[in-house]
Amino acid sequence: GKMTGIVKWFNADKGFGFITPDDGSKDVFVHFSAIQNDGYKSSDEGQKVSFTIESGAKGPAAGNVTSL
C-alpha cells in the first residue's frame, strides 16, 4: 500500500536519494525514475512524499513517488 515519508536527501546529479518513512521503518532508496512529477524528476530534502515499496535488484526501493 501507499506510505508517506520525508525525502532525507536527493542527489539530482546521480539521480537517487533516500526517503525516511513516517512509520519509523528503515530509510528507503529512491531512484529518479520512480518520481511521478511531470518534467524534471528530482526531489528536495524535506519534501513530504507518498510512495509504494517495490522490490528492486538491490533490495527495497520506493515506487510511485508523489509530492504531497
Results as ranks from 00 to 15, higher is better:
Lys2Tyr: 13
Met3Cys: 11
Met3Glu: 05
Thr4Val: 06
Gly5Arg: 00
Ile6Pro: 01
Ile6Asn: 05
Ile6Ser: 07
Ile6Trp: 10
Val7Trp: 10
Val7Phe: 09
Val7Ile: 15
Val7Glu: 03
Lys8Gly: 04
Trp9Ala: 00
Trp9Met: 02
Phe10Thr: 02
Phe10Glu: 04
Phe10Leu: 03
Asn11Thr: 02
Asn11Pro: 03
Ala12Arg: 13
Ala12Pro: 12
Ala12Glu: 09
Ala12Thr: 11
Asp13Phe: 12
Asp13His: 11
Lys14Val: 08
Lys14Glu: 05
Phe16Asp: 00
Phe16Ala: 01
Phe16Thr: 01
Phe16His: 03
Gly17Cys: 08
Gly17Asp: 01
Gly17Glu: 01
Gly17Ile: 05
Phe18Ala: 02
Phe18Asn: 00
Ile19Arg: 00
Ile19Ala: 01
Pro21Phe: 05
Pro21Met: 04
Pro21His: 01
Asp22Gln: 03
Asp23Cys: 09
Gly24Arg: 03
Gly24Ser: 04
Ser25Thr: 10
Lys26Val: 11
Lys26Trp: 06
Lys26Glu: 11
Lys26Asp: 11
Asp27Met: 06
Val28Asp: 01
Phe29Gly: 00
Val30Ala: 00
Val30Asp: 01
His31Ser: 07
His31Trp: 08
Phe32His: 11
Ala34Pro: 03
Ile35Pro: 02
Gln36Leu: 13
Gln36Val: 13
Asn37Ser: 13
Asn37Trp: 14
Asp38Leu: 14
Gly39Cys: 14
Gly39His: 10
Gly39Trp: 14
Gly39Met: 11
Gly39Val: 11
Tyr40Ile: 12
Ser42Leu: 14
Ser42Asn: 11
Ser43Asp: 07
Ser43Glu: 07
Ser43Tyr: 15
Ser43Cys: 15
Asp44Met: 15
Glu45Gly: 13
Gly46Met: 09
Gln47Met: 12
Lys48Gly: 06
Lys48His: 13
Lys48Ser: 07
Val49Trp: 04
Ser50Asn: 05
Ser50Gln: 09
Ser50Cys: 13
Ser50Arg: 06
Phe51Arg: 00
Phe51Ala: 02
Phe51Asn: 01
Phe51Cys: 05
Ile53His: 05
Ile53Met: 10
Ile53Glu: 01
Ile53Cys: 08
Glu54Gln: 11
Glu54Gly: 06
Glu54Pro: 00
Ser55Thr: 13
Gly56Lys: 06
Lys58Ser: 09
Lys58Glu: 06
Gly59Ile: 03
Gly59Leu: 04
Gly59Trp: 08
Gly59Phe: 07
Pro60Ile: 10
Pro60Gly: 04
Ala62Gln: 01
Gly63Met: 14
Asn64Met: 08
Asn64Tyr: 08
Val65Gly: 01
Val65Asp: 03
Thr66Ser: 09
Thr66Lys: 09
Thr66Leu: 09
Thr66Gly: 04
Thr66His: 09
Ser67Cys: 13
Ser67Lys: 14
Leu68Gly: 05
Leu68Thr: 07
Leu68Ser: 07
